[in-house]
Design a protein around this nucleic acid. Sequence first.
DNA 1: AACACGGCAGCAACCGGTTCCCGTCCGGAG
DNA 2: CTCCGGACGGGAACCGGTTGCTGCCGTGTT
Lengths: 350, 350
Amino acid sequence: MTRKSEDAGRSTIRDVAARAGVSASTVSRVLGGVYPVSSATRTRVMRAVRDLDYVADARAKAVAGVGTPTLAFVLEDITGPSFAHMAHGVEREARRLGHLCLVCTTEGDVQHEVEFVEMMRAQRAAAVILVGGSADTPEYRERTRRMADSLASAGSRLVLCGRPPLGPGAPVTVIEYDNEGGAYALVAHVLTQGHQRVLFLGGASDHTTAQGRERGYLAAHRARGLDPDPALLRHGDFTRDSGHRLMREALEQGLEFTAVVAATDMVAAGALTALHEAGLSVPGDVSLAGYDDIPFARDLHPALTTVHVPYEELGRLAVRTALGRTPENPDEHLLLGTHVVVRDSVAPAK
Amino acid sequence: MTRKSEDAGRSTIRDVAARAGVSASTVSRVLGGVYPVSSATRTRVMRAVRDLDYVADARAKAVAGVGTPTLAFVLEDITGPSFAHMAHGVEREARRLGHLCLVCTTEGDVQHEVEFVEMMRAQRAAAVILVGGSADTPEYRERTRRMADSLASAGSRLVLCGRPPLGPGAPVTVIEYDNEGGAYALVAHVLTQGHQRVLFLGGASDHTTAQGRERGYLAAHRARGLDPDPALLRHGDFTRDSGHRLMREALEQGLEFTAVVAATDMVAAGALTALHEAGLSVPGDVSLAGYDDIPFARDLHPALTTVHVPYEELGRLAVRTALGRTPENPDEHLLLGTHVVVRDSVAPAK
DNA sequence: AACACGGCAGCAACCGGTTCCCGTCCGGAG
DNA sequence: CTCCGGACGGGAACCGGTTGCTGCCGTGTT
């Protein structure tokens, strides 16, 4: 045991002060930069800092009120491509604004979400960004409202990103994108091609993102005086496997349709594979469309017609509005537009 | 301005103490749980805590030595599917072990990586996980070694995940997976199908992950006494666009080959699209294989034969070994296996 | 009835920083 | 030569918690 210093590492500002023969205040000032310090002293201090490989403890600085601010990001699963893009946007913007970024995935567990928000409040995060659709129940509103209030009263801020907004008056920033409008435009495009029976492969029926897209599907039909067969509406979740299963089931049941609109590109990918497995050609035998415009959509065969959602922009905006919020405009609600991108998977009906 | 309390929120333990008519120590002990407190006092304190919606400041606790430990995760881009899966593994395991998880994306900027590691040292992160291949230059080794030492001397730990290891003696934990072995097995599988000229769509030529896969490609050839035409080795990066471009160029140049092995599934996806655009059928005209086994690989058409890499497991192991490290086994180096998963995109040569 | 003991609460020190406030020392001006 | 002011460094209070130690008070024992 003959190690000298750097034993348990972590030297304190007092160690540095001692080594440089000055007081802790002086070290702090040298490192801080603004206060006048003679160059001789500065040199000695810097020397000691380098010798000891000293870095000020960020937590202690934070307590003293001069820390790097932090921002928290809560999502269900970082693995989904659209979530990943939002995360990317959040992280980039957070960094640009000098914030650190904590992440947590909830695996869809509500309880865990609540706990995490509580932790973030304890961490004094500047904002907590909650991402991803959810069931819009009274229970949801109350729970979320409670989180919003508690965060707000601690000087922080809840941001709902692609999530159902709360009632008016809730101290919350909401950034949404137009699920219904995008789906409406997409389905209108499909119907324009002459398709009469369009299968909709949806998500969970209580999930607001899924609902919005489904509403768009219905609205597009009604706008042309159509009333889609309820048998054409299928519900699952937003995964590839769900699309695969739903599609196979529809096929096995002999359901008739000439086009399929999937609630997400992932769902569309699974559906496409099921279609291929059944020996059907896309778009020859049936047309297919997705939603999200993940990078992969281009590489499916045929390239997938889908709705573009500016996910990264969404993430960036979430942090920007949450952080740049002023007392004048406390509650913001943004709605980002979506647009359909036409590729090769939708063809005219025969 | 008639708001009463909760004005700027953030009540302190002393506020709670005052309201409950006890000392701060008592509040701390009630919240801590272990120390004996009379039930009357406990009730009063809890009451005050609820009234004020008090949560102890995590940073202050951390300074006092009883905080939630934190772990940092540094990667190039969360958007890549394999990175996302590793991130998922890291996050899950971190949570299981009661750690918070900070992320940072570097966008490939080395300088930024160094700065971030420094910040994490200041944050007193329990471990810093660096993810993703890199050029293995002397400069890399020195820089990384420096980060490792500085982290180690601060009682933290550097973890290299899918990155070139440093020399012996560096205080570093390395978790790798077998790039070369996987590529070897994959290319051997392709060659066994009778292909003679196999195009390799690689990544950056100084990137260790890319190098490993390329070595596997070469080794598989040599093992059967083959010496591949250098014109068959192409270099780009790991993106979909790179695969698309490389493939198109090869096609335009009239290069001859009957199979393509891409360095990643993303590259394969781009290549597949280029192949389709050229009117070639896969695997009828040319066989194609990828690497990574991202979920989407199944949904390409044809379903992509590829190499499975246990990315999530990799992430989990990274945090487990970094955190579970004991003084007895300080430096660990793990190598995870990979295996080829055969789907439909590789067929016998004609 | 005196005493010992243990349960419970508070004071004060500490964690590792920052910063206010004050004292010293220096040089230049009158 | 004295006076004044600015540059510079240190002591101490503070940020918001935790915890060792001390002491009070009530109760059970002899």
